[in-house]
């Protein structure tokens, strides 16, 4: 059984992060932007897990749990904001939010 190189894991994390970043930059729909941020957070967590299993330490997994908590809190607040924006502006266009004026 051959071991997996660390570079392959980090490359997977990099590719997933890049895909999320492209989606954040390209999309105008705020729900899609939120989904893309989730993809990016997950890729960052994957890099932590790869590093943690490289050194056989639990610290990487602990960091992933913290990232998971942060993602859960972020998505709940983000979805509440999306509901408010859709309620007030009747659109999911992120550009329309500059008309809110506080």
């Amino acid at each position: 059984m051959k071991a997996i190189p660390v570079e392959a894991g980090l490359l997977l994390a990099g590719i997933l992060f890049m895909l999320g970043l492209i989606s954040v930059l390209v999309r105008r729909n705020i729900i899609f932007m939120l989904i893309s941020v989730e993809i990016m957070l997950n890729a960052a967590g994957l890099a932590f897990i790869v590093a943690g299993s490289k050194w056989m330490q639990p610290d990487g997994q602990v960091m992933f749990i913290f990232i998971l908590t942060m993602a859960a809190a972020e998505v709940s607040v983000g979805l509440a904001l999306i509901l408010q924006i859709y309620h007030q502006l009747k659109t999911l266009d992120s550009d329309a939010a500059n008309k809110m004026n506080g």
Binding site: M1, A3, I4, P5, V50, K54, M56, P58, V62, I65
Partner: peptide
């Protein structure tokens, strides 16, 4: 330089002890 991941798992007990 190429480094490989050891084929050993870090179980949930170790994670809980660190957490």
């Amino acid at each position: 330089d190429e480094t490989v991941i050891q084929d050993k798992e870090v179980d949930s007990k170790a994670v809980g002890m660190a957490l």
